[in-house]
Structures are given as structure tokens and as C-alpha cells.
Computed example of a mutant assay.
Amino acid sequence: MNFFRRSETFAALDLGTTNCRLLIARPAGDRLRVVDSFSRIVRLGEGLQASGVLSEAAMTRTIDALLVCAEKVDHRAVTHARFVATEACRRAANCGEFLARVHEHTGLELEIIPTEEEARLALAGCAPLLDPARPHAVVFDIGGGSTELLWVGVNPGVDGSGVETEIRDVISLPLGVVSLTERYQAQLSDGAGPAVFARMVDTVRDAFADFDRRWGISAQVAEGGVQMLGSSGTVTTLAGMRLGLPRYERQRVDGTVLDFPDIRRITRRLVGMSAAERALEPCIGAIRADLMIAGCAILEAICRTWKVGRLRVADRGVREGILAGLLAATRSGVPDTCIRPAALSS
């Protein structure tokens, strides 16, 4: 059965604290095929930890990126879309001004979603990578301004293929690669090394403790029924480094497995480098070099708290979750649950 009209095109935009990402897809049978994409590091939340507001420079950078997104949405004649913003916009006192400027300059209307919705979308995007044979999962997304952590029940799909998931609990910590870097900025000069890294790890582990006790996750890990799935630039970068990629390749990274010993080995090497040396790593680059230590500290805290031993790497998340929702809404015959892009509205 064909659920779609030939002209239907779907778009998902995720504006985070660090990145602006867009996916555009069209029907291919009962699935969606990506026809265009865009990703740019905009660092919208730069300085937010100290000031409580989005800076003029950060807003300008982000609007420039959103203009590219709006042009792609228009060029691809998108019919159904959802454009979401997360932690930086949730926290910034001047977010209303920013959203008004975005609409004025690009025609896009951004939807600020709560942490629970962000986590739900991230899980929806990553769920196909979960193993239906393991009944529990720790799923995490290390963002720029926050880290979302989910305790998830996993079951085989009703038709014997795929998985069904149940979010048992979710927490969002105001500790992401940007916010944690800014918290320790004064101590993160070149040569600060392992001592500062250890303090960062302890800060994050302390924030996980109550969540772990509430659900007895460590005990479930000891019994062998827990899997771990990570969605973030930190884990995809480490996966690219472990694979020895001369440049980042999504198809090779998405779905790969990182063993904890490999994570520790690569992390120790990065902690021992200067920011300039990290910038020379092909899967890192100059724009993200100063953020990697914080990302590795959050990941280290997760691995030490829940000693699963390995994690599955997901180069997918909120955007894919949005597309899955748009697809499901259209297949169910309720297209009005999809959001028509404001840039194309009459």
C-alpha cells in the first residue's frame, strides 16, 4: 500500500547548544530516503553559563546557519516539518527576542521542546540500534548545554522484528560539552591535564548517583541484562578515532561498538594533548577541539557509573526521531499532526 503522495517531503531541524542540524527526506516505499542535509557548529550557547543570555555573535552565527536551512526547505518544497530548539533556548533569558529574529530573517518558527520530549525524540531516532535480546538499556545524549539520560525497557517488536521501547525514567543534567567546559574554563589551560579531568568526571558522577539508586541500575548491570547506547558528537568522534578514519564517515561510525578499554585509551591520549594538538585530529578539528575534554569527562562518568563494558554508537537522534514521527503521522492518515514549515505558509 502506498501511504504517500509523490509530492510529500519531510524535514527535521534540531537546533542545540552547539550544532544546527537539518534532514530532509522523501518517501521510498514505506520508509523515508534522505535527499538533503545540513550541519553546522554554531555554538549558540557560548557564554550562556555565565551570562544567562544568548550573545549577539552567537545569535548572528545561528541565524546565518538557519538561513541555509530555510533555503534548503524552500528548494526541496518541503510539505511536512518540525523545527525544534533545545537547551540553549530553554535557558536563555532573551530567547523570545532570538526566536522573533529567526522568524523575521528566515521565516522559520522554532519550537522549544522540553527535556522529556527531546529525550523521547532522541530515543525514537536511535531505537533501531538497540538489541531486543537485552531487556534494559541506558541511553544517553551528550549535548552542548545538557546531557539527557534515559532508563529504557526493551522488548522485541510485535512482529518479531525490531524493538519496542518504554521510557521508564529520564533526567536532563545541565552538564554538556559547552556548559561543563565553561564551568572549568579557568582550569582548562594547556597542561592542566588529568587532575582537572578527574574533577570534571567526579562532578558528573555525583549528578548521576540518585538516578542510579532510584532504579537500581548498577545491580541490573551486574546481572548482565543492560545494554548501552550513546548518541553524541563525543561518542561518534571517539568511534571515528578508534576506526582510524582519515576523515569522519557517518556510515562507518553509526552502529559501531566501542569497548570501554578503547574509550579509556583514546580519552587518556586526548587529555594529554593540548587544544592545538586535538585540533589536528581529523575527526575533531579546530572548532570542537576545546570541547572534547568535557565530552570525554561526561562519557567517562557514564562508563564508570554503569560498567556495561561496551556501548553502541549512534550517529542519529532528534532529527531522525522527528522524521519517524512525521512518517507515522502520515501513515496513520492524520497529516495535520505534522507541522507545515512557516517559511512556506501563505
Rank of each mutant, 00 (worst) to 15 (best):
R5W: 08
R5E: 15
D14P: 08
T17M: 08
T18S: 15
N19H: 11
R21W: 00
L23N: 03
L23G: 05
A25P: 11
R26T: 14
A28S: 15
G29T: 13
G29C: 13
D30K: 12
S37Y: 07
S39H: 13
I41H: 05
L44G: 06
L48E: 01
Q49S: 11
V53S: 05
A57V: 14
T60F: 03
R61G: 09
I63M: 07
D64Q: 12
V68H: 12
V68R: 11
C69K: 01
C69E: 04
A70W: 12
K72Q: 14
A77H: 15
T79W: 10
H80C: 06
R82A: 02
F83Y: 02
F83C: 14
R90H: 00
R90A: 00
R90E: 01
A93T: 01
A93K: 08
L99E: 01
R101Y: 01
V102C: 09
V102L: 06
E109G: 13
L110V: 02
I113S: 00
E116V: 05
A119V: 09
A119R: 06
R120Y: 03
L123V: 10
C126I: 04
C126Y: 02
L129K: 08
L130C: 10
L130Q: 08
L130F: 09
P132C: 13
R134M: 14
H136A: 15
V139C: 11
V139E: 00
I142T: 01
I142G: 02
G144N: 06
L150R: 06
V154S: 03
N155Q: 15
P156I: 10
E164D: 12
E164W: 02
E166V: 11
I167N: 02
I171Q: 06
S172P: 05
P174G: 05
T181F: 02
E182I: 05
Y184A: 04
A186H: 14
Q187S: 14
L188R: 14
D190M: 10
G191M: 12
G191A: 13
F197D: 04
F197V: 06
A198E: 15
R205C: 08
D212G: 03
W215L: 14
S218V: 03
Q220H: 05
V221R: 04
Q227Y: 09
Q227V: 08
G230L: 01
G230Y: 00
S231W: 11
S232P: 13
V235F: 05
T236H: 06
T236D: 10
G240N: 13
G244Y: 14
Q251V: 12
V253E: 11
D254Y: 07
G255M: 08
F260R: 13
P261K: 07
D262V: 14
I263S: 02
I263G: 00
I266A: 00
L270D: 05
M273A: 02
S274A: 06
A276T: 04
A276D: 09
E277C: 10
C283K: 05
G285S: 10
A289N: 06
D290P: 08
D290H: 12
L291C: 10
L291T: 03
C296N: 00
C296E: 00
A297P: 08
L299H: 05
I302A: 03
K307P: 14
R310D: 06
V313M: 01
V313H: 02
A314R: 09
R316I: 07
G321F: 07
I322D: 03
I322Y: 03
A324R: 10
G325H: 04
R331T: 03
V334M: 09
V334N: 09
P335N: 04
P341E: 09
L344H: 07
S345Y: 11
S346N: 13
S346E: 15
